[in-house]
Design a protein around this nucleic acid. Sequence first.
DNA 1: CCAATTGACATACGCAGCGTATGAACTTAC
DNA 2: GTAAGTTCATACGCTGCGTATGTCAATTGG
Lengths: 201, 201
Amino acid sequence: MAHRPRSEMIAETKCKLLESARRAFGTVGYADASMDDFTAEAGLTRGAIYHHFGGKKGLLEAVIMQIDAEMTERLHEVSKRASNPWDGFVDECLAYVEMALEPEIQRIVHRDGPAVLGDPLGWSNQEGCLAAMMKHVRTLKQQGYIRQELDPEATARLINGVSLHGAQWIANSHDPKQASDRIVIAFRALLEGLLTTSNVN
Amino acid sequence: MAHRPRSEMIAETKCKLLESARRAFGTVGYADASMDDFTAEAGLTRGAIYHHFGGKKGLLEAVIMQIDAEMTERLHEVSKRASNPWDGFVDECLAYVEMALEPEIQRIVHRDGPAVLGDPLGWSNQEGCLAAMMKHVRTLKQQGYIRQELDPEATARLINGVSLHGAQWIANSHDPKQASDRIVIAFRALLEGLLTTSNVN
DNA sequence: CCAATTGACATACGCAGCGTATGAACTTAC
DNA sequence: GTAAGTTCATACGCTGCGTATGTCAATTGG
């Protein structure tokens, strides 16, 4: 077995770095993740990181983009199998909450990410979870489900905030199950504020 | 002029440390704030920090508590001069948004704080901004303004999330004025979802 | 098929920054 | 007035990042 093409080797190296970095970031956090440690774990050294990702920050950014792509995919799956647009939207929101409960996502995407890279607006603008939700809101508006005066982007942003904080509260609650139930009730109530009067049940 | 009582000297030292640390954290951020630098700026050394605050984290915690206390006070002022409870609540929410726009608050309280110290639930549980908002929600519920099935804590948490993300979006927008207008509309819509049907206009 | 060149990493070095252990001065208590 | 405790400064070692440099393999051009 001779050597495989170079492009494959590179892709594998990048993949290994992303994997071990993601695990380190997700467990001990960005600040306490030693580059020497998790590169060694991947059988490499820091040199590879500086070459491929420019540095520790670049690596974090790449990890986040990877996770965000996975989240977007999962959310798409959820909203696809709803019977009507509004329910699909609500389901997607709740799925987003559930995902934010996963330790890896919570830590990397929602805590260290904004702290290290700044506001999420910069790195998840195109084709990310936020973009997907924004598109969803726009559709609901066109179909008359929600109020006409609502701006899709602003609305998506706010709902995103609701989801994140709800999730955070649930995650850190001593009784996650009960917290989840209470959050869902309040969440649904808030969302109903968006509906046009003719759509309020 | 002889020596003043020791307790005064200590208080002054603590105050100076808090002040310079707060400035450093608020501008360059927690990670890039060198303890040697901002202690020197206060005419002291790191030794003082480890003695009084236990370390860098402890100092951040103290700074956050100081800011949170100021925020609580300011919010209280706002809601006090409203004509009715619901308007007072809405005003308080919008004031919270505005405060989250201030760079120092945004950076220290909403970004570095959670990243370094973990979830805000731990450090702002008692007598903080969240507690105040929660109390407000409870009152509104008792007075019949908002739905009975809503849990005050969960609701306050979600609204907090709405405020934070709205503020963040406004702050990073290229047109803050326009963004602010769009956020306010969506924010009000969401809040109206909390109202009892008899209170919806 | 063989240089020449580029790319993909590893190695070595320097430096900043944190935490701790130690020490000195000053205060308070008795 | 002395002993004890407090408040800070100083000194030390360690970890961890970034960069500069080196090395080897792979690709390219003739």
